[in-house]
Design a protein around this nucleic acid. Structure first.
Lengths: 249, 249
DNA sequence: CGGCAAGTTGAGCCAGGTCAACTCCGGTGG
DNA sequence: CCACCGGAGTTGACCTGGCTCAACTTGCCG
């Protein structure tokens, strides 16, 4: 049986580590038949009603954000979902219920809860993939908490650049290129700071010869080691230049 | 078959919604036979070596924290684990690997990974409990991110008090008592602020007649509504007194 | 090539961090 | 039973990182 045409280019199916790739042909045909792909453009939200009938969503392309709004308009991006993530909103926390908003053009697939459950019950491989993905989401959220709680602005930005680096599946290089898949404003909201501050931090990193901007969203890392140290809060690494033999206060 | 004596008082077994309560008698006997309880006193850490052979831990009593340390000594508590939580450290994020540290006297149970896996594969009810617990951990982490990123000090503290309130399983009351299960220092590290600031915030909430301190760890909520509003960032609710007919800027 | 949104730069200000002194409380021994 | 001690928490005074607001520049799309 051939895969449903809409699945042919979807990473969930083509990437051997992802959910749909674990399914037997008949399972896949079942699921594909009962599921619906969806394209979102930047800023589009996945509304309540859409979610109540399709609470399970898998991300194919693009970055989806979970946003939280305070009464006075302050906005926070609490998590990012990227390709391969499976989001089950049925038991979304009642306290801080957020909104799913696309940060770029996003392609996703709304899975039939019924068939999804059925597959989860019967297919251990698929179950394992979903399980690991959820654990990964948990740890990402925890790491993110660590990043935004005690770190200062420059350290947050450094952490984020590294997070992007590690996330993209290219082979390690000495001066790797990193793509930042978010606008500055969104990045600011994700890191809990102001766009102006984000901008200043990037500039600082460039002035110190740690990064080089190829374009707004494309950075070359010139000194990964020092970037790492800044992200980890080593104050020395944050100094402008290697002033030889500086006294540590 | 009677439950292993060590399990008789453990919430994981006695609370009908928790993991061990889902097990058939023989499953439970298997698991209990291969698992080890452990008591930690405040400050004790669950070391690397202990975890490598016992990577799966269930919390019975007390509060366990996952801490993250920066190079220069800044500490952050990224998550709290409480009774009923099941922690699987086998795939702990490599990036920000943290340390598990007890924040009070903690009782936990190290589960045999082998038997745990076996039960997970065979017992759908148990699987569901673990699954929901993990989802809950994820959403807690996400909520926590929202709390610490854009909120200011007073709002963070208000959120935390409410989180404690909702977490403790008592019937709703008009002026409920809340137990804060953390020391001030730990609370500060969890909320990403300084102990001094935490102290000032509690004092502010008392001065405004929203809270009353019964003791350091026991608070009475006098005005839950206003507390809620502060936690949600409504600037008006944060005003000292209901200055009648104040103009909104 | 014009127009608008996104991003950057600069100047001033304030929430909360920092440091140091003080108080409170529980435990311990005389 | 009380005096003493040490750690936890609080208070006050000061200082600074990053927020705010406003003006400016850049990049993108028709």
């Amino acid at each position: 049986m051939k895969p449903s045409s809409k699945c042919e280019t979807c990473v969930l199916y083509t990437n051997s580590g992802m959910f749909c790739a674990q399914l037997a042909d008949d399972e896949h045909a079942d699921l594909a038949g009962q599921s619906r792909t969806l394209s979102l453009k930047r800023g589009a939200t996945l509304g309540e009603r859409a979610l109540s009938s399709w609470p399970i969503v898998a991300v194919d392309q693009g970055v989806l954000s979970l946003q939280h709004l305070l009464q006075d308009g302050r906005k926070t991006i609490t998590t990012l979902f990227m390709k391969g993530d499976i989001i089950d909103l049925r038991e979304m926390s009642r306290r801080n219920r957020g909104t799913l908003i696309a940060l770029g053009n996003v392609k996703l697939c709304r899975l039939s809860p019924l068939i999804f459950e059925q597959i989860m019950a019967e297919n251990p491989k698929a179950q394992k993939v979903v399980w690991n993905n959820l654990k990964d989401q948990t740890y990402r959220a925890i790491d993110h908490s660590a990043d935004i709680s005690k770190k200062q602005a420059l350290e947050k930005v450094a952490s984020f650049v590294l997070e992007c680096l590690y996330h993209q599946d290219a082979a390690p290089k000495s001066t790797p290129l990193v793509e930042i898949p978010l606008r500055r404003v969104d990045l600011a909201e994700y890191l809990g700071m102001q766009p102006e501050t984000v901008s200043r931090c990037f500039k600082t990193l460039q002035k110190r010869g740690i990064l080089e901007a190829k374009s707004l969203n494309l950075l070359q890392i010139l000194d990964e080691d020092r970037l790492q140290k800044i992200a980890n809060g080593e104050k020395e690494a944050a100094q402008s230049l290697p002033t030889t033999a500086r006294k540590i206060a």
